[in-house]
């Protein structure tokens, strides 16, 4: 059994949360609210050290990058959200960050998300697996095509598409089960190994 007080704290909190499986209770509620608080406090300290000091304070104070006053002023308009009369001003910084980040990502979405994927689907040599994949991509696209009724040829292709989608969902299902079970395993490993020390 562990002699580390921290391990005990972690173990007891783990048990508090697991108690939810029996039913909702004050121990669970306490742990839930504690988690929310700790996570928020963690974020505040991290932002302080990793953003406010190196990205604002040092550049302005020591590196004389005064152009940063412009985004600082723009960003401070976010605070107008708190005053209903001036809330509309908070749209300015939102508009800037939304516009600029979309502008950066739109061409990249086309390049990485579409061009590259289309290119890799095209057949450039004969292989059964590649053809199976090619049919799957086209059929799935047709299934999600809404401008034609699923009848006749289009219906047949869409039907093929749905089978591919179901296989893929089966894969997601299997993998999700695996992920969730891993989480239980991780917690029990902690309790049995780090806390109680009954397993090596």
């Amino acid at each position: 059994m562990s002699h580390d007080i921290w391990v005990w704290v972690a173990a007891l909190l783990t048990l508090c949360i697991l108690s939810f499986l029996y039913k909702d209770n004050p121990f669970y509620k306490f742990a839930e609210y504690l988690l929310i608080g700790v996570a928020l406090g963690f974020g505040i300290a991290i932002v302080w050290y990793n953003i406010i000091i190196p990205k604002i304070w040092i550049p302005l104070r020591y590196q004389h990058q005064y152009h940063l006053f412009i985004p600082a002023c723009l960003g401070s308009l976010y605070i107008c959200r708190l005053f209903p009369k001036y809330a509309w001003l908070s749209r300015w910084p939102i508009a800037f960050s939304l516009g600029a980040s979309i502008g950066m990502s739109l061409p990249l979405t086309l390049q990485a998300g579409i061009f590259k994927q289309v290119q890799s689907t095209m057949l450039s040599g004969f292989s059964i697996s590649a053809i199976i994949a090619f049919i799957g991509v086209v059929a799935t696209l047709i299934y999600f095509y809404f401008s034609a009724e699923h009848k006749g040829f289009v219906g047949g292709v869409a039907k093929t598409g749905i089978w591919y989608v179901m296989i893929s969902f089966g894969a997601i299902f299997g993998y999700t089960v695996m992920a969730r079970m891993s989480l239980i395993i991780g917690r029990f490993e902690f309790l049995l190994h780090n806390w109680l020390g009954v397993i090596k």
Partner: peptide, 25 residues
């Protein structure tokens, strides 16, 4: 997209990589 997929594949199967390369970046 489907049009280019099919066209690119037909050309690709007869060893013409024009469309394929066009989508390359």
């Amino acid at each position: 997209l489907i049009f280019f997929l099919i066209l690119g594949s037909i050309l690709g199967l007869i060893n013409n990589d024009f469309i394929l390369n066009w989508f390359h970046n």
